[in-house]
Amino acid sequence: MPARNDAALDFLKSRYSRPAKLFSLPVPTREQLTEILTAATRVPDHGKLEPWRLVVLQGAAFRRIADLAEARARELGGDEEKIAKGRGQYDLGKLAVAVIASPKPSPKIPPVEQLLSAGALCFGIVTAAQAAGWGANWLTGWPAHDAAFTARAFGCTEGERVAGIVHIGTPPEGFADRPRPDLAKIVTWAEA
Rank of each mutant, 00 (worst) to 15 (best):
L76Q: 14
L76R: 14
G77N: 10
G78I: 05
G78R: 04
G78V: 02
D79N: 15
E80T: 12
E80D: 15
E81T: 14
E81V: 14
E81L: 12
K82R: 15
I83F: 03
I83R: 13
A84K: 14
K85F: 06
K85C: 00
R87T: 11
R87D: 08
Q89C: 10
Q89R: 15
Y90I: 07
Y90T: 11
Y90D: 10
L92V: 12
K94I: 02
K94G: 09
L95Q: 06
V99Y: 02
V99L: 08
I100L: 11
I100R: 09
A101F: 07
S102K: 15
S102L: 04
S102V: 01
P103L: 10
P105W: 05
S106E: 11
P107T: 13
P107H: 11
I109R: 03
I109E: 11
P110E: 12
P110F: 04
E113A: 14
E113Q: 15
E113L: 13
L116A: 13
S117T: 12
S117M: 06
G119A: 13
G119I: 02
L121M: 09
L121P: 08
C122L: 02
C122I: 02
G124M: 01
G124C: 03
I125T: 04
V126I: 08
V126H: 01
T127W: 01
T127N: 13
T127Q: 06
A128C: 05
A128F: 01
A128N: 06
A129E: 03
A131W: 05
A131K: 01
A131M: 03
A132M: 04
A132F: 02
G133C: 00
G133Y: 02
W134R: 01
W134D: 03
G135Q: 01
G135A: 06
N137Q: 08
W138Q: 08
W138N: 09
T140C: 05
T140A: 04
G141I: 04
G141E: 06
W142K: 08
A144P: 04
A144T: 11
H145K: 08
H145V: 03
H145M: 10
D146A: 09
A147V: 14
A147E: 15
A148N: 09
A148I: 13
A148G: 00
F149Y: 15
F149S: 10
T150Q: 08
R152A: 15
A153H: 07
C156Q: 07
T157H: 11
T157Q: 15
T157A: 15
E158Q: 14
G159R: 07
G159Q: 11
R161S: 15
R161I: 04
R161A: 15
A163M: 08
A163E: 09
G164Y: 07
I165R: 00
I165G: 05
I165F: 05
V166C: 05
H167N: 12
I168W: 02
I168F: 00
G169T: 08
G169M: 06
G169A: 11
T170A: 05
P171N: 10
P171Q: 11
P172I: 07
G174I: 01
G174F: 00
G174R: 12
F175I: 05
F175Y: 15
A176L: 11
D177P: 03
D177T: 13
R178E: 14
P179Q: 09
P179S: 10
P181W: 04
